[in-house]
Simulated scan of single mutants.
Amino acid sequence: MKKLAIIFWFYSACGLVAQDKIDLVFNETTHEFGSIDASERAVAVFSFVNVSANPVYIYHIEETYGCSIIYYSHRPVLVGATGTITVQYNHIGNYGEFAKSIYVKVSNGTDNRTLEFKLTGNILPPATNNKDKFVYRQDGLAFREKGVDMGAIIKGFVANKYFEVYNYSSKPIRLDFADVPNFMDIAVEGTHTIEPYKTAKIKVKYNSGKAKYLGKLTSNILLKINKKNEIKFPIKANIKEDFSSVSVADFQNKSEIRVTPDYINLGRIETGKQYKTKLKIENRGASPLKIHNIIVPVYTTYSKLKNNTLNSGQSVILELTIETDKINILNEKRYISIISNDFINPILDVYLQGWSTSSIFINKKY
């Protein structure tokens, strides 16, 4: 099952020739803000390259929630040129997790189509006192969340995010950091010593260009308290490939990922048993297919691919091992994500399915 497609190609219902179809390559169609403070601005920029045979233009945009300011390219976007759609989400008075959609109507003068774009994130509510604001507490320090979500970052870009730490103890606490990856800088603004009942602001600088992989990544850094106790603190990000320089020629000679089977049905599951299965990854396109990353659930392991770059017509086998005793009913991830340079499916998900007579797994998909 294909989770994300960021190329839209359309044919008119009237049997038009190939020159009348609309081909647009977007950097993303879903923008993840991650966690943001109620005082922060939430702005997403969707950029696209017109790889059609004709100019296209945006003639209408509508939203489902009425809380945004939207700017877009009003002039026709020529063949090979780039257009943008900028969305500023007004979240004042709205807190918690959100998922919003906007619908963009495009035309090439002959064919008209509607595209959907999504905004997701979590707005942290304001608080009148530190007890309500910093709800996660450990070893004298308190946090608003159990980690930091940087949201979506286009490969090569640098993202900055701040989070606050509160010292709820009666003694000063020195805060240091360990196990910080080379693509990330994390530092306390000001002194590393946090006085009793005071807060400190921490800056996270995330250089996605230095990150080895694409996709949803979690880096568990260590917060060292008084150089003794340690708190594991996850920092998450979703790094996406930059398609902004795609040309018409690139599109015409694109790579194309094909995975078989497109879902895995384990059938009846016996708890504690190990299951092995295989996926075939094939390049059906003209250009080399580069497999950037493979993300699996915690109960699944996979063998290293013999080749991460597949020329046209080549394939490789991905061997998977599923440990059923590690499956957690609270774990929402029920699919394997294969991240590649395919314009159409940069993130391709293969879903796992099965059932068990156990009360834990009955009628559950995983």
Rank of each mutant, 00 (worst) to 15 (best):
L115Q: 12
K227L: 06
D262K: 15
L330R: 09
Y302T: 00
Y299T: 07
P288S: 08
I70N: 03
T324P: 05
N293Q: 07
S73E: 12
S219G: 01
T324S: 13
Y206S: 01
N94E: 13
K278P: 08
Y162L: 08
P55H: 04
T309E: 08
A44D: 03
K280R: 13
L318K: 03
N160Q: 14
T271K: 12
A187R: 14
Y65V: 15
F233S: 01
I338G: 02
K306E: 15
I264Y: 09
I362R: 12
E145H: 04
S356K: 07
G209L: 06
V77C: 04
V77Q: 05
K212R: 11
A142Q: 02
Q314W: 01
L330C: 04
S340A: 04
S255I: 03
T260E: 11
T260Y: 07
I347Q: 10
S73F: 01
V45F: 02
P346S: 09
E63K: 14
N328H: 06
G313C: 03
N331Q: 10
L214Y: 08
Y206F: 15
I344R: 13
K171C: 07
R75Q: 15
Y59W: 10
N341R: 05
K118Q: 10
I295G: 02
V87C: 11
F177E: 00
V49K: 12
K146C: 14
N341A: 14
T110R: 09
I194Q: 00
V316I: 01
K3P: 01
N130D: 02
A13G: 14
K118R: 15
I6T: 13
F177H: 01
N50L: 03
T357V: 11
F361D: 00
R113I: 11
A178L: 10
N308L: 05
L24P: 05
A159E: 15
N167E: 04
G140Y: 02
N328Q: 06
K131W: 10
V135L: 04
I85C: 00
T357K: 15
G147I: 00
V49M: 12
L214K: 06
L348V: 01
D325Y: 11
E63F: 08
P125M: 02
I294N: 00
S35I: 08
V106C: 03
I231E: 00
Q19P: 03
N27Q: 00
F46H: 02
N308I: 05
Q138W: 13
E230H: 12
I186Y: 06
T120E: 11
F46A: 04
F26P: 00
K290Y: 10
G15V: 07
N50I: 01
S68V: 02
N50A: 07
D139F: 13
G147M: 04
K232V: 14
V87L: 08
V188Q: 07
K254N: 09
D111K: 08
T321S: 08
Q274K: 09
I317R: 09
L115K: 06
K236I: 05
K131M: 06
E241T: 14
R137H: 01
G140K: 06
Y57I: 04
N341D: 15
Y89M: 09
T128A: 11
K155G: 00
K146E: 07
